[in-house]
Write a protein that binds this DNA or RNA. Structure first.
Lengths: 208, 208
DNA sequence: CGCTAATGTAGAACAAGTTACAGACTTGAT
DNA sequence: ATCAAGTCTGTAACTTGTTCTACATTAGCG
C-alpha cells in the first residue's frame, strides 16, 4: 500500500554489477554443492563463504541468514525445473493427471539429490516471518508450475484453493519422505489423491 | 537388525520412578511456558533446565535435543486436545463437515497460543530422521483425531491416503498462517477444500 | 585524475545448542 | 546397612550461526 510497495515491489534490487552477480552465483552454487553433499547441516556459513571465495561478512550481506540462503537456493533450482518442465509439458488427458505427472516428475528430480532437497525444504518450512517475501516467491513459482500443468489461465478461487492444498501436500509429503517416514509409493498415492481435488473444481464438466 | 532393535522396539522406556515422572513433567511444562511466551527461539535449553529445576545434562538425558523436546511438547498438547475433543464430538452430518469442524476447532485452540503453536509446528517440520519415531507418534495421534471425527472404524486405504493428505494440508496451512503468509479465512477455505476429498472416498453412497 | 560512499576482507567476539566430565545423590539388591 | 550401578548436578568446553570492527578495495562522479 505504501508508495514503496508499489514502486519497489519485489526486486528491491539496486541492479548488481557484473562482479556482484558473479559473487552471488558463486555463493548459490557453493550452497547447492554443499547441500547436495551433506544436507542442511553441511551448509555451514563459513564453508559456503570459503567455497565461494568471499568473506563471511559479504555472504551475510548477500543473504542475511542461512535460511535466506537456502530459500534462495531453492528459488534458483525451481527456476531450472520450471524451464525444464516447460520444454516437455505433461501429456495426460485431464488436468488432474497432468498435475500429478508434473509433480511426480519434479519429485524424481529431487530424488536424484535427496540431500539438496532436504536442505531446501527444511529451510523453507523452518523459515519464519522474516523470510516471508522470499518464501512467497518460492510459493508463487510452485503455483505457476502447477497452474501451467493444469492449463488454467484464469483460475477460479476454488481452483486456487485446490492448488494451495496441492502445494501443502507436496511440501509436507516431501518432508515425510525425506525424513524416512513415508515411501515413494505412498507419496505417489497421496499426490494422486490430492490431485483429484482438481476434478471437483473443473468448471467445464458440470455433470453433477 | 540388532537384537536390541527387536526387543526394545519403540517404548524403550524402562518405567520411570515418581521423581523422574515429575521431572519430565516439569520440563515439558517449562518448555510449553517458555514457548508460549516467545515461540521457538525463546525455548532455550539452559532456560528450560533452570525453569524446570534440573541440570542441563539431565534435560538432555530426558530429551536428546531441542527438537525432541518440542516434539514431545506437541505430543503432550495433542493428548490434551484429543481428550477435550472427545468430550464434545463434532456435530456435522457428514464426515467431511465433521473433520473440517474438528480441525477448525483445533486451529482456534492453537490461535490462542500462537507462539506455542509456532514452536511446536516448526520443530515438527524441522525434525530430521533422528526424531522420526517421535514425529510418527504425533502423526498417529493426529490421524486418530481425524479418523475419530470421520467416524471411520475400518478405514480403507483410499481413506487413509485422504487422511494423510488432510494432515499434510493441516500442518502446512498452519505454517503459512503462523508465518503470516495466509489469513485465517484462507486456512479455513483450504481445510474445507481438502476435506471434500473425504466425500470421494466414502463407500456408503455409491451414487456415481 | 582524485574524492567519497559503498562494498568487500579478515578475523575477533558473541549466542545458543550440544557434549564432556568430575563429583554428589538415589536406588535396588544383597 | 552397605555396596555397585545408575542418575543428577554444576560447570566448562566446543560448534556453528550471527554480529561487529577496523581496514582495504571498488565504483561512480566531479
Amino acid at each position: 500500500m505504501t508508495a514503496e510497495s508499489r514502486a519497489d515491489h519485489r526486486p528491491a534490487t539496486p541492479p548488481l554489477t557484473e562482479r556482484q552477480e558473479a559473487r552471488r552465483r558463486r555463493i548459490l552454487d557453493a550452497s547447492a554443492r554443499l547441500a547436495a553433499r551433506g544436507g542442511f547441516d553441511a551448509v555451514q556459513m563459513r564453508e559456503v563463504a570459503e567455497a565461494a571465495g568471499v568473506a563471511l561478512g559479504t555472504l551475510y550481506r548477500y543473504f542475511p541468514s542461512k535460511i535466506h540462503l537456502l530459500v534462495a537456493t531453492m528459488q534458483d533450482q525451481l527456476q531450472h525445473m520450471h524451464t525444464t518442465l516447460r520444454k516437455r509439458p505433461p501429456a495426460g488427458a485431464d488436468p488432474a493427471t497432468r498435475v500429478a505427472e508434473t509433480l511426480m516428475r519434479a519429485f524424481r528430480a529431487l530424488q536424484r539429490e535427496p540431500q539438496l532437497a532436504d536442505a531446501m525444504v527444511r529451510a523453507l518450512t523452518f523459515a519464519d516471518r522474516g523470510v516471508s517475501p522470499e518464501v512467497d516467491t518460492v510459493s508463487r513459482l510452485t503455483t505457476a508450475i502447477i497452474l501451467d500443468a493444469m492449463g488454467a489461465e484464469q483460475p477460479t478461487p476454488a481452483q486456487l484453493s485446490a492448488v494451495r492444498v496441492i502445494e501443502h501436500t507436496w511440501h509436507s509429503a516431501l518432508i515425510t519422505w525425506l525424513s524416512g517416514r513415508a515411501s515413494i509409493a505412498q507419496v505417489k498415492i497421496d499426490i494422486e489423491t490430492v490431485c483429484r481435488l482438481i476434478d471437483l473444481t473443473a468448471p467445464e464438466r458440470p455433470h453433477r
